[in-house]
């Protein structure tokens, strides 16, 4: 039943997101807000921001990969939404994107650096949602093992965890 509802909501988001030609109020999130998007957006729902709960995230195209990280032991499987899919869905424009974490850590990167396969805004690690202690609610990760280009200082510094805010700037 719950999954059915989630599917319905996802369907609504997609429906609303598909009308991206004009700024429009998207339905407010029903569950706990995991991520708040602000700045230069086409889609918003609460006070000019777009707040997304897990159901809304799950309604977007899902991507997952398994990789080791320098911060964890083993090779966890991360699942979530690619940043580029999110950007496409919310109609974000502009030159840079700033990501902010609970611990006040922040990363600013040009939108041009957003690749087709990474970064991934993961909200599931090994199928589980992530608590604050587990670098939740959202951890932006790269498939470090798949390519050397993801094992650079820059990539590591952009791998922001305990992510809650994304601000798009012109």
């Amino acid at each position: 039943m719950k999954s059915f509802l989630r599917a319905m909501c996802g369907g609504a988001l997609i429906l609303s997101l598909s009308l991206s030609a004009r700024a429009e109020e998207v339905a407010a999130p029903k569950g706990e807000v995991l991520l708040t998007l602000s700045g230069s957006l086409e889609q918003t729902n609460v006070d000019g921001t777009l707040q997304l709960d897990q159901a809304m995230l799950e309604a977007l195209p899902q991507t997952e990969f398994t990789t080791s990280t320098t911060w964890t032991s083993g090779t966890p499987t991360f699942k979530g939404v690619l940043l580029k899919d999110l950007i496409a869905a919310v109609g974000a424009k502009g030159g840079t994107v700033t990501l902010q974490a609970v611990n006040d850590y922040a990363v600013t990167m040009p939108l041009a650096d957003v690749g087709p396969e990474a970064p991934l805004l993961a909200f599931l690690m090994d199928g589980e949602t992530m608590s604050l202690r587990d670098k939740g609610p959202i951890w932006m990760v790269y498939p470090y093992d798949s390519n050397e280009k993801f094992r650079t200082e820059e990539t590591y510094s952009r791998s922001i965890w305990q992510l809650t805010q994304i601000i798009f700037a012109d």
Partner: peptide
């Protein structure tokens, strides 16, 4: 806790 976990499990 999360930061400390990096020292325990991470590299």
């Amino acid at each position: 806790y999360s930061r400390a976990q990096n020292a325990v499990g991470g590299k």
